[in-house]
């Protein structure tokens, strides 16, 4: 369990002055995750908002080592750094204990970087991979990704006269990652900082690959007032839209369970990307989204029971 007093003593690794939007979920996710360890860290990021807004040459917002290589290869890049570290440590050329952490958006993780991530997980590198999931390609202007939820309007799956936005469901990335049977994988949310920092502490502490899928709202892409980021993130958890679960040594469990799950429309109605769903002709889609969430929740209940024995 994270203690806010203790956490406040950890120096900021991502400093202020970067050029992410105010109210951006990504920087909150990064700062909370980096509170999960007091060890020195080497960080890496896939191409995306986080990278472009924190490293505009000749400035950097990173007070710790940082590398950006390309869009789809942050997991492979951190593999190389972590392996170099092991090689040089073996030879006595480096003595410190260092943690390695990679950040990618949902585009760089669910989609274009999935192979690179899968390879790194399978090889068992000692690193933490963090997906800051804002459910679309925000850096290039809100295009649909494999993480975009059903019904969201994006610039490449816009709501139109014959479309209600993205017709497909989002990929269950956390389960895909867990299928690699790595020691630790979890879903976190920036509104539940204690839960997320605790998960991050676990992720950094274990030997081998660990994965955190962090729900990180984007006010530009989701179209809500920038002051509402945390409120909306919280609603995602309270409605079951983003379950807080973890997969630890083969066991699935909920780390937080709302007393009573709110209807998903409570979450959907806060954002411009779902506005069209409230038109009469799209009402059935709202029903479908609620049904999908219920089905997935029930699936998770069974999964936690089946693996807890």
């Amino acid at each position: 369990m994270a203690n806010i007093k203790e956490l406040s003593k950890i120096p900021e690794r991502l400093t202020s002055g970067h050029r992410l939007c105010s109210g951006c979920g990504a920087s909150i996710a990064v700062r909370q995750v980096l509170m999960g360890t007091t060890s020195p860290v080497v960080t890496a990021a896939a191409t995306g908002c986080l990278e472009v807004a924190t490293t505009i040459y000749p400035y950097t917002a990173w007070a710790v080592p940082f590398i950006h290589n390309a869009f789809e290869n942050v997991a492979a890049t951190i593999s190389g750094a972590e392996t170099a570290y092991r090689a040089l440590k073996k030879k006595g050329k480096i003595t410190k204990d260092i943690k390695f952490v990679a950040f990618g958006g949902d585009g760089g993780t669910y989609d274009i970087g999935l192979q690179s991530l899968s390879g790194a997980l399978e090889r068992g590198h000692n690193f933490v991979y963090v997906c800051y999931d804002n459910e679309a390609y925000m850096n290039t202007g809100i295009q649909r990704s494999g993480a975009t939820p059903t019904g969201a309007s994006t610039t490449t799956a816009p709501a139109g006269k014959v479309s209600y936005g993205k017709p497909q469901i989002r990929k269950d990335l956390t389960a895909i990652v867990a299928a690699h049977h790595i020691p630790y994988a979890a879903q976190g949310c920036i509104s539940h900082w204690n839960d997320l920092v605790t998960k991050s502490q676990k992720a950094f502490a274990i030997e081998g690959p660990a994965f955190l899928n962090v729900f990180s709202p984007c006010h530009r892409g989701w179209r809500y007032p920038q002051s509402d980021t945390i409120k909306i993130a919280k609603l995602a958890v309270e409605t079951g839209f983003w379950p807080l679960i973890e997969f630890e040594n083969g066991k699935w469990s909920f780390t937080y369970r709302p007393k009573e799950r709110k209807p998903v429309v409570e979450f959907l109605k806060t954002q411009g990307r779902f506005k069209h769903l409230f038109k009469e002709e799209n009402k059935p889609v709202l029903g479908r989204i609620q049904k999908d969430i219920d089905t997935h929740w029930n699936y998770l209940e069974k999964l936690t029971q089946a693996t807890s024995a």
């Binding site: 290589n69 390309a70 492979a76 951190i78 170099a84 570290y85």
Partner: peptide, 9 residues
């Protein structure tokens, strides 16, 4: 990609 991460380290 891994070579880049390694060489830079």
């Amino acid at each position: 990609s891994a070579c880049v991460g390694s060489a830079v380290s």
